[in-house]
Write a protein that binds this DNA or RNA. Structure first.
Lengths: 328, 328
DNA sequence: CCGGGCCAGAAAAACGTTTCAAATTTGTCC
DNA sequence: GGACAAATTTGAAACGTTTTTCTGGCCCGG
């Protein structure tokens, strides 16, 4: 049962190994009668193609790599689900690797992917350095950037318009009557945090008061609330760089007797599942995460399968405002 | 740059291909002088081992498969992170597949894993049928069950004691003075929901009032709250089969003017990040998810690397009570 | 000085597929 | 019925490693 090869199938079906291979890879090239005979033999023997041998000889594999920054983050989880969906429907296997924000680990992971001779790589790069990716491309491995706009037009990328999202958020707050707004954010070394601020300030017309936290967690959000309260001067509204911060902040404010949205309106970013579930449901900016993964994968596989006709695309999705109780 | 093989390295270093292979796989077998020369050549040429050729010849790969039921569920996400961590630290690549609860998709994914000749598979099976897994084992692929206790002692498994968790939850509610308790759950076809109820009732001493919802989401929790309120007879406490239900329920109760924990105490299950972040933080039962993934992977790789000395283990983790405001 | 045992490295045979040119069969048309 | 083209099928080489068997030199004891 264990090691039936293509030869065994060939013997059983009374054909040559080459024909079995044809049945497997180009069924249309072989007459219906023999095809059926071979397929029967495959079933009877429980034959499973040896992927490595196939990859070795054919020169390309049926796997793609996915390198994300934080597998624990719901954003990437959703992206991953989209990737897995498309890849598996096309018969591709997805090798997952998590750089955990470490450049060294990312490098190691990319090496593993190169060894596995993946067909292509989907990556949310942990920094701007394009050298590693160029090296992959030199090896014939296609690369698509995920949640990161490409700088040069010679590669594909999918991203979400964070500047636009920031604008939408603040415009909405202003529409509900806010005159003073605070931006609570994670580290301003993160592109997303920066872009969202840029958009927010563009909508606001002038610089925003900013509270920068070291992390983007509920805990950090609660600390931000304390900071805000300590400063004394409560704004009309707060824009948080993600929902985790916003939920923590909401909790902090509520516990201090500040009412949301009556005293302070609040908007988050990402629209995670729990945004709708909190005591006062959270207005947020939704990103098409699942679609991000799907489209990135489609782009990658198109690049792999039709290198001749493939045109590189830099796709930018628009995020969407979801209004709930926290800004009413 | 693209296709430098072991031969090129050998030529460059002035040795035979076999020696290069030895440097790569059993460095101790080759003299320090030549080893260094070969390593230099590897660096200079940017050689990357061709994983498929290696797998083909060596008969085993450096990849493992991970098949989960729902990649979007934070529980599995955490498990996945643990798996990735251990696997990548040992140089293994992880092929991720998502069965999305569909038996057919699980089957397809396992086939892909078999084609890739993964060394072993970590799987949260979508049903009880052991036939598929036996088939894998027949092919020499080790299998470790994740979040599912093994029935037979001839395989490894890691799981969390859901009966114990249910007991802990209800015992805690009773300790805080609850006399009447309702169990809000997802489909009772799910093993976890059943086990938790069993434990809960064992602690309670008699059957619990049960509200069974079709899903385990915040929305379902909110509907459960409506149901509870409609029935009129409010209990002292509610035990929810997971945190998503609990958060939805909390929101539903709060909006109806019922105070948590003053009117009704509330405990969830899973201790997701947001449990601590809600307006009234949620008491919950924490599962060692990350560790679940880590240990499962260690077990699997031990089984692969030391088949002789490996002893199958069925590990059962104990969940842990985390007390917060919703039961004070 | 000689011979046996050892060690480092070499050479060649796999591993299981795919591919491609060549061979064979089938079909078509006069 | 025969010739030619088209459609199938065959057979062997090749993909890049690992592994096993061998070879030649070296060390050491006798």
């Amino acid at each position: 049962m264990s090691d039936v090869g293509i030869k065994d199938v060939a013997a059983r079906a009374g054909v040559s190994p080459g024909t079995v291979s044809n049945v497997l890879n180009r069924p249309e090239k072989v007459s219906p009668a023999t095809r059926e005979r071979v397929e029967a033999a495959v079933r009877e023997l429980g034959f499973v193609r040896h992927g490595s041998a196939s990859t070795l000889r054919a020169g390309h594999s049926k796997t793609i790599g996915l390198s994300v920054i934080d597998i624990g983050n719901p954003f990437f989880t959703d992206v991953t689900a989209g990737v897995e969906e498309v890849a598996s429907s096309l018969g591709y296997a997805v090798i997952l690797s998590n750089s955990a924000g470490s450049r060294a680990k990312e490098e190691r992971n990319l090496l593993v992917l190169a060894e596995q001779r993946v067909r292509g790589v989907l990556i949310t790069p942990s920094d701007e350095d394009p050298a590693r990716l160029d090296r992959l491309r030199k090896r014939g491995i296609s690369v698509v950037l995920v949640d990161h706009p490409a700088h040069c037009p010679d590669q594909c990328s999918v991203a979400v318009n964070d500047v636009g999202g920031g604008m939408t958020a603040v415009r909405h707050l202003m529409d509900t009557g806010a005159r003073s707004i605070v931006y609570v954010t994670g580290p301003l070394t993160i592109r997303q945090c920066l872009d969202r601020r840029a958009g927010a300030e563009r909508a606001f017309g002038r610089p925003l008061r900013v509270i920068e936290m070291g992390a983007m967690t509920p805990r950090a959000g609660q600390q931000a609330a304390e900071k805000l309260l300590a400063e004394g001067d409560l704004p009309d509204a707060v824009f948080c760089a993600n929902d985790l911060l916003a939920l923590g902040l909401m909790r902090g404010l509520t516990h201090a007797g500040v009412r949301v949205p009556d005293d302070v309106a609040l908007i988050g970013y990402d629209d995670i599942d729990f945004a709708a579930a909190s005591a006062v449901s959270l207005t947020s900016i939704r990103q098409p995460t699942h679609q991000l993964g799907r489209v990135a994968t489609e782009l990658l596989l198109d690049e792999c399968d039709n290198p001749a006709t493939h045109a590189h695309q830099q796709i930018m999705f628009q995020p969407e405002l979801v209004v709930r109780e926290s800004t009413r």
